[in-house]
């Protein structure tokens, strides 16, 4: 269980974080969503210990997160960085060793990741000679080389090609299936929806919405979408607030069973369901509220 508790951070006069808390249970994939400058990166940097919070705590399995425990974490910073003049396999293995692996273990793990990422033939090349996409894959390998027991990834999907996105998604799911808490930020909300068990939305340094994907969707559900094959205009017939969306009626603040009765009486009901908002819609709603 990874708990980020009540983080506050100021940069000069700017309040970057104002009481940010979020939790990732073992095996839970948490999507961290927010506009640019909302405080995602600051939160993750503090969680990884590369930035100090003004106040607040990071707790892992009931104890304050220390250097030794952090070393078993996998981290991908938003600003990607690799040694340009170091060979690919050597570099991945070096990070494995820094995370406490023996040299042999680190080399094995690096080779396995390169294989998985289709980079085996570039193992002996300098990182600076790889394409940007391939450098991203190496970055991914660096964050996974030590078989981390928790993952904190800042925009792990940005700049990845579809194959690497799949590898990354699979890696996240695999780690979560092993019981690792996973927190990642992304602007690709479809990915968040596909991969995450829960979502945390941050805006201006504050958490503005958090919960499982279902919870959030349920909370946002207000509109009943009804489609009836009839010549009548039912706008005035339905209770509540009624708007039209093409041929569909969107009904809010009404008893759904009553709406159904009226619709069935008017003609053949071809669609009757609450609109499931996408995470993107929830996000827009939460941020503009």
């Amino acid at each position: 269980m990874l708990e980020i508790k009540d983080l506050h951070k100021r940069f000069g006069d700017t309040v970057a974080l104002d009481g940010v808390s979020l939790t990732a249970a073992p095996g839970e994939v948490v999507g961290f969503v927010g506009a640019n400058g909302a405080g995602k990166t600051t939160t993750m940097r503090i969680a990884m210990g590369v930035l100090a919070a003004d106040s607040g705590r990071i707790v892992y399995d009931g104890a304050p997160l220390d250097v030794a425990a952090r070393r078993r974490f996998g981290y991908m910073p938003s600003e990607r960085g690799l040694y340009p003049k170091m060979k690919t396999a050597e570099q991945i293995a070096y990070f494995g060793e820094l995370h406490g692996m023996s040299r042999a273990e680190a080399r094995r793990s690096a080779a396995a990741l390169l294989e998985q990422l289709n980079l085996t033939e570039r193992a002996g090349d300098f990182v600076q000679d790889l394409s940007l996409g391939n450098q991203q894959r190496v970055q991914l390998a660096v964050s996974l080389v030590h078989d981390p027991e928790a993952l904190i990834l800042d925009e792990p999907f940005s700049g990845l090609d579809p194959i690497a996105v799949d590898v990354m998604g699979t890696a996240l799911k695999d780690r979560a299936a092993d019981g690792a808490p996973v927190i990642f930020s992304s602007h690709q909300l479809d990915l968040i929806e596909r991969l995450c068990d829960s979502v945390v939305i941050i805006g201006n340094g504050k958490i503005i919405a958090a919960g499982s994907v279902e919870e959030l969707k349920a909370k946002e559900v207000k509109q009943l979408r009804v489609c009836v094959q009839t010549a009548q205009d039912l706008t005035g017939a339905f209770p509540g607030t009624v708007t039209r969306d093409g041929d569909d009626y969107l009904v809010e603040d009404a008893d759904d069973q009553e709406v159904l009765r009226i619709a069935a009486a008017a003609g053949r009901v071809t669609h009757f369901a609450y609109d499931q908002p996408t995470i993107a819609e929830i996000f827009r709603e939460a941020v503009t509220r």
Binding site: G49, V50, R71, Y75, E79, L98
Partner: peptide, 17 residues
């Protein structure tokens, strides 16, 4: 400067002092 400009220092400092 190389480590700083390539931002790799951020990863390094998660496992090194």
């Amino acid at each position: 400067v190389e480590e700083k400009s390539s931002r790799i220092v951020e990863i390094l400092l998660t496992s090194l002092k």
